[in-house]
Amino acid sequence: MTLRDLKPGQQGVVTAIRTAGSMKRRIMDMGITPGVEILVIKVAPLGDPVEVNVRGYELSLRKEEAQQIEMK
């Protein structure tokens, strides 16, 4: 399962980040590291990106980016 599969209101724990390079670094810099809890808040009005809560703040990312984040 990836972060993309979570619906607003659902919560999960990050297990791995699949992508590499600058995208991976950026994801990790923003606090999405293995073991962290993520709560999906909402989806943007046009269907993408999504808004999540991680480490006590709100972060937005595109669905294709969310798909790189493995959850359990």
């Binding site: 995208m23 703040y57 937005s60």
Partner: peptide
């Protein structure tokens, strides 16, 4: 340049 959209939504 690669672009991404990993962005904080501040209070």
């Amino acid at each position: 340049d690669t672009s991404n959209f990993i962005m904080e939504l501040p209070q």
